[in-house]
Measured scan of single mutants.
Amino acid sequence: MASQGTKRSYEQMETDGERQNATEIRASVGKMIDGIGRFYIQMCTELKLSDYEGRLIQNSLTIERMVLSAFDERRNKYLEEHPSAGKDPKKTGGPIYKRVDRKWMRELVLYDKEEIRRIWRQANNGDDATAGLTHMMIWHSNLNDTTYQRTRALVRTGMDPRMCSLMQGSTLPRRSGAAGAAVKGVGTMVMELIRMIKRGINDRNFWRGENGRKTRSAYERMCNILKGKFQTAAQRAMMDQVRESRNPGNAEIEDLIFLARSALILRGSVAHKSCLPACVYGPAVASGYDFEKEGYSLVGIDPFKLLQNSQVYSLIRPNENPAHKSQLVWMACNSAAFEDLRVLSFIRGTKVSPRGKLSTRGVQIASNENMDAMESSTLELRSRYWAIRTRSGGNTNQQRASAGQISVQPAFSVQRNLPFDKPTIMAAFTGNTEGRTSDMRAEIIRMMEGAKPEEMSFQGRGVFELSDERAANPIVPSFDMSNEGSYFFGDNAEEYDN
């Protein structure tokens, strides 16, 4: 993207840094990872977990959730003011799984939030270390993106479920800051804005008074975040219109849905970061690795190297396929839920299948599930090659597409044709070009129609051997075009429920 120079890199967003050079960025990201790792080690000690239990991804998720809940100030305040039966607002906890007599047992633990905050700050040299908290939120978000298709949420806001490739980060909490905003897809931002506008339509006082002023500035800020994701002048001009509207209503909703559809071809720039579970960072720190000293990046080879040398386990339900569970977590670790499966298959070195073909449910185990038949197995999170994460949407291309997802959002900077089903997408653009945004709409449609099938995206960008740390010898991959490109292809993934 041309304006790259004016933006802070995501590592800076990730670490609240002012302008830093590459070495400083690597050190501050490393410091953040160190903090998460030290916190995780301490929690495993508190909970008396064995090494194996500490490497269980379900335990990692519970521990991450506990610290996120302990620092969720708004919710904590709300819980104190609106006490609900049987919930102690000062405590947080969740299921911890232990191996007892050759069987997995679930144990519900409860801790004072104050105590968890103390352990977290102690692991982070006394700081609140917001960057580390956001990092864990993005890992949870990436896992949700890989596990669930947001059909219901899309339909509720009037969008087409086939636009799911635009929904990265749709389950990120509001408090995820600049680093969170960077990884949100165009569809996620559109959905947040539509929800806001709908509230304004239904509630006369939404934009009024002292609160209304705050609401208005939040609305304009979200519009600017979305505008910054678009790469064409016409899309940005249309966002200006939406932002400046005196009284946002149905016309703005129409414009936003139009823009979301246009992003299936004229893709937005959305950041991709490899955020790993805390149970990967903990053992690495415990083994003596100093992330701050060595430096770390979320968008280069580092996460690949770390996963190459990590042992992570997962509980497996009786009829689940461990290899499929591994694929789910591998995609989440690489922030690749909406990437082209052919690119992923090449990088991973084994075939990556669409969601609907995987015999696996989510990673988390519900409290009512029976533990008797639970097994555990090693997650295979290694890769054959590594590639640089991208934040450009890439230019655009036609490809055989599917009944489910009709476009992709690249996660890796790797040369390819970008699949999208042009006739299906263009069919949504018939007729409606009147109104105050008509010239911009016409211009956007013209650009979409001009998108050429034979153009290559990320020209000359390749993948790298894991021994090639400096990215000196790019390998331009070859793809098996007979395979499906979309992950949520004609899909039956479970729906995400809060």
Rank of each mutant, 00 (worst) to 15 (best):
A2E: 06
Q4H: 08
Q4M: 01
Q4P: 01
G5T: 02
T6S: 14
T6H: 08
R8G: 01
Y10A: 02
Y10K: 15
Q12Y: 01
M13C: 04
M13R: 12
M13T: 12
T15S: 03
G17D: 06
G17N: 03
R19V: 05
Q20T: 03
N21M: 00
N21F: 07
N21C: 00
T23K: 00
T23Y: 01
T23H: 00
I25H: 14
R26V: 10
A27K: 02
I33F: 02
D34G: 02
D34T: 15
G35W: 10
I36D: 00
G37I: 03
F39L: 09
F39Y: 03
Y40S: 03
I41A: 00
I41S: 01
Q42C: 08
Q42R: 05
C44Y: 04
T45A: 06
T45N: 02
E46A: 00
E46H: 12
K48Y: 07
K48P: 03
Y52V: 02
R55D: 03
R55I: 07
T62P: 02
I63E: 09
R65F: 02
R65L: 06
M66E: 07
V67G: 01
L68K: 04
L68A: 01
S69C: 04
A70G: 02
F71G: 09
R75G: 15
N76M: 02
K77S: 15
K77M: 09
L79G: 04
L79Q: 14
E80C: 00
E80V: 03
H82L: 03
P83W: 07
S84E: 15
A85M: 05
P89Y: 02
K90H: 02
K91Y: 07
G93I: 08
G93C: 11
G93Q: 06
G94Y: 10
I96T: 15
I96E: 03
Y97E: 13
K103C: 01
M105F: 00
D112S: 00
E114V: 12
E114G: 07
I116E: 12
I116K: 13
R118P: 06
R118C: 00
R118L: 06
W120D: 11
R121G: 05
D127F: 02
D128W: 04
G132D: 09
G132I: 08
G132Q: 03
L133P: 13
T134C: 02
H135C: 09
M136R: 15
M136G: 15
W139E: 08
N144I: 03
N144Q: 15
N144Y: 14
T146P: 15
R150S: 04
L154P: 14
V155L: 14
V155M: 08
R156L: 04
G158L: 01
S165H: 10
M167C: 03
M167Q: 10
M167V: 04
Q168S: 04
P173L: 08
P173H: 05
R174G: 05
R174F: 02
R175L: 13
S176W: 11
S176C: 01
A178E: 10
G180D: 05
G180S: 03
G180C: 05
K184I: 14
K184R: 04
G185M: 10
G185A: 07
G185H: 01
M191N: 00
M191K: 03
L193W: 04
I194S: 03
K198N: 02
K198F: 15
R199M: 10
R199N: 04
I201T: 05
I201N: 06
N202Q: 01
D203C: 10
D203Q: 07
F206P: 01
F206I: 14
W207N: 13
E210D: 15
E210C: 13
G212A: 12
K214V: 02
T215N: 12
R216N: 13
S217F: 04
A218K: 07
Y219R: 04
M222I: 06
C223F: 04
C223K: 12
C223Y: 15
N224I: 14
I225N: 13
I225Q: 08
I225V: 04
I225G: 14
L226Y: 11
K227F: 11
G228Q: 07
K229Q: 02
K229T: 01
F230K: 08
F230E: 10
F230H: 10
T232A: 15
T232C: 13
A234R: 01
Q235L: 01
Q235N: 13
R236P: 05
M238R: 08
M238T: 13
M239D: 04
M239Y: 02
E244R: 10
G249P: 03
G249C: 03
N250V: 03
I253D: 08
D255E: 13
F258S: 06
A260T: 14
R261S: 12
S262D: 10
R267D: 12
R267C: 12
S269P: 08
S269K: 10
A271Y: 09
H272L: 13
S274W: 10
S274E: 10
L276P: 13
L276C: 12
P277Y: 10
Y281S: 09
Y281C: 14
Y281A: 09
V285K: 04
V285N: 14
V285Y: 04
A286D: 05
A286Y: 05
Y289V: 02
F291T: 08
F291M: 12
K293N: 13
E294P: 07
E294S: 00
L298Q: 10
L298S: 05
P303N: 07
K305E: 06
K305D: 13
L307R: 13
Q308W: 02
S310R: 08
Y313P: 02
L315T: 13
I316D: 08
P318M: 03
N319Y: 14
E320P: 10
N321R: 00
H324T: 13
H324S: 01
Q327W: 12
V329N: 05
C333P: 04
A336H: 10
L341E: 08
L341T: 12
L341A: 12
S345A: 15
S345V: 12
F346N: 04
I347M: 01
R348W: 08
G349A: 14
V352A: 02
V352P: 15
P354S: 13
G356L: 06
G356M: 10
G356P: 10
K357I: 06
K357E: 15
R361N: 10
G362K: 11
G362R: 06
Q364T: 03
A366D: 04
A366L: 04
A366R: 10
A366P: 05
S367K: 06
E369V: 14
E369K: 12
N370V: 15
D372F: 12
D372I: 10
A373F: 02
M374R: 14
E375P: 07
S376R: 05
S377D: 06
T378C: 04
E380V: 14
L381D: 12
R382Q: 06
S383E: 05
S383H: 15
A387R: 11
A387L: 08
R389C: 11
T390D: 05
R391I: 09
Q398N: 01
Q398P: 02
Q398V: 15
Q399C: 05
R400M: 14
S402L: 05
S402K: 15
G404M: 13
Q405F: 10
Q405L: 02
I406W: 12
S407N: 05
S407W: 10
Q409T: 06
S413E: 09
Q415N: 13
L418Q: 13
F420A: 02
P423Q: 05
I425H: 11
M426K: 04
F429V: 02
G431E: 06
N432F: 15
N432K: 06
T433G: 02
T433C: 00
E434S: 00
E434F: 09
G435A: 14
S438D: 13
D439Q: 09
E443C: 10
E443G: 04
I445T: 06
E449P: 08
E449S: 01
A451L: 06
P453K: 02
E454W: 01
E454A: 15
F458Y: 12
Q459M: 02
G460N: 12
R461V: 12
R461H: 08
V463Q: 09
F464C: 03
S467V: 13
D468V: 15
E469R: 03
E469V: 05
A471P: 08
A472W: 12
S478A: 02
S478M: 11
F479G: 01
S482G: 09
Y487L: 13
F489C: 05
D491R: 02
N492E: 12
N492M: 12
A493K: 07
A493V: 15
E494W: 11
E494D: 08
E495G: 13
E495A: 07
D497N: 06
N498P: 02
